[in-house]
Structures are given as C-alpha cells and as structure tokens.
C-alpha cells in the first residue's frame, strides 16, 4: 500500500517530520515555480515611465483620449516597452493613419512592429486574438460596438498568452469589461511654437491613470513630456 501526498496536505503531516516537510516544499516549488511580479512585467522607458513605470503581462490596459490629446503617443510608448525587451508588438490601425516616424521616435523598433490595416468589423476580434497569440503587446483601437463577450474572450486570451492588450478609443470607458489599468490622456500645452515663429518642440501631457487595486480605485495624475 502506498500513499501519495499532495502539496495541499502539508498541514496533515506531523509537525516534527522536518525531512518530509522539506521534501514537500521542494516538490511544491518544482511543480509550481514561483514567478516574481517583476519578471512578469514589461518595463516602460521614455516619458511615459513617469505615469506607468511598468505593465503587467497578461493584462488589459484601456486607454482613452480625444484626437490630438496624445493618445497615440502614449500607447506607442507601451509598444516600445515590448520591442525594447527584444519582443514583438503589433497595432490594429483600421484607418491606416499611424505615423511610422512617430512610432520610431516613441522608441518602437520598427523591425519588430507590425501594423494591421483595414480590418473588417466582423473580424476585429479574430485579428486581435490572433495577434495576442504571437506578440507581447497588441495595440488595438476599440470599434464602436465591441461586444462584451468578445472583450471578455480577448482579456482571457491575453491572460492565457501572457500578452498585454492595449485597447484604446477616444473614451477609455469604451472597453466594456474590466481592465488592470485605465489611462486617459488629457492633452497639454505645446512648447516652442509662437505666433508665426518657432517650431513645435513638445508638450507637457497630462495622463490620468486609474489602477485597479484590491478594492479601491486610486487615481494618479502624472505630467510628462511627450513628443508628438
């Protein structure tokens, strides 16, 4: 007769049996290796790091901002975090208006950054799900009528593949299910430009970051210089 001892049963073993407990701890560690939170995060570099120092893999970030408020630059900063780590990023750019040069200036390695254009509405979820299989960060503009079921499935897919989904729209609330982080870019004054003189130099961009804590919502406000 033999007994199989599962790690959960640790409390049932007599306390004095130190050898058995040590053995059990080793088995437990081998079966479910501990992963530190910092190993599961992508470190953000550049100006966005003041507001969002890192993003957790396997989570969804919902981002919002009116046109011209710096939303595109902010989400590109998250894609740059992936390519800087030697990984891949992709963007679903339905209108095909993304400025490639701005992506490069945001720190994205263009050789590891693919852009998917003109996606039919009914294939949006399929395309985003496929991208989540292959790359670490997916930037996707939320279509006007995204289904709750689709959003939930995409969040599950991101969690399962340890990828980051950055879903963006003019209003971050367009993402219908929960997100680990919500960003709302609020624009900012432009520097360097005058009444017919100077050139655009940059801006102090305000981003409202809402992180989902254990039970409370903590709004943070950070100001950062973003180019473009």
């Amino acid at each position: 007769m033999s007994f199989v001892v599962a790690p959960d049963d640790a409390s049932s073993i007599p306390r004095r049996d130190a050898a058995a407990r040590a053995h059990l701890a080793a088995v437990g560690a081998a079966r479910a290796p501990m992963v530190l939170a910092r190993d599961r995060a992508l470190i953000v570099h550049g100006p966005l790091a003041d507001a969002v120092p890192s993003v957790q893999r396997g989570t969804v970030i919902a981002a919002g901002g009116e046109p011209g408020s710096g939303l595109t630059s902010a989400v590109l900063g998250i894609a740059a975090a992936a390519t800087a780590a030697g990984e891949w990023a992709a963007m679903v750019d339905d209108a095909g208006t993304l400025g490639g040069l701005a992506a490069a200036e945001a720190g994205v390695d263009l050789a590891r950054f693919a852009v998917v254009r003109s996606v039919p509405r009914d294939r949006w979820a399929t395309v985003v799900a496929a991208l989540l299989e292959g790359v670490s960060v997916v930037l996707a503009e939320i279509p006007r009528s995204v289904r709750v079921g689709d959003a939930r499935r995409l969040a599950a897919r991101a969690r399962e593949r340890s990828a980051v989904l950055v879903a963006f729209a003019p209003d971050a609330r367009a993402w219908p299910v929960e997100a680990a982080l919500r960003l709302q870019t609020q624009g900012g004054a432009w520097a360097g430009i005058g009444e017919g003189d100077g050139v655009l130099a940059g801006r102090a961009l305000a981003v409202e970051v809402t992180a989902r804590g254990r039970s409370t919502i903590v709004p943070m406000r950070a100001s950062l210089e973003l180019a473009g």
């Binding site: 490639g100 490069a104 263009l110 254009r117």
Partner: peptide, 16 residues
C-alpha cells in the same frame, strides 16, 4: 496567418 486572412498588404511594417 493574418496576411492569409486579410491579404498581404493588410499587414505592414514601416521603413524610414
């Protein structure tokens, strides 16, 4: 796979 689904010109990369 996406190029197969949407067409090759729908998945692009930027070259300065």
């Amino acid at each position: 796979r996406l190029q197969g689904l949407l067409g090759p010109e729908h998945v692009v990369t930027a070259v300065p």
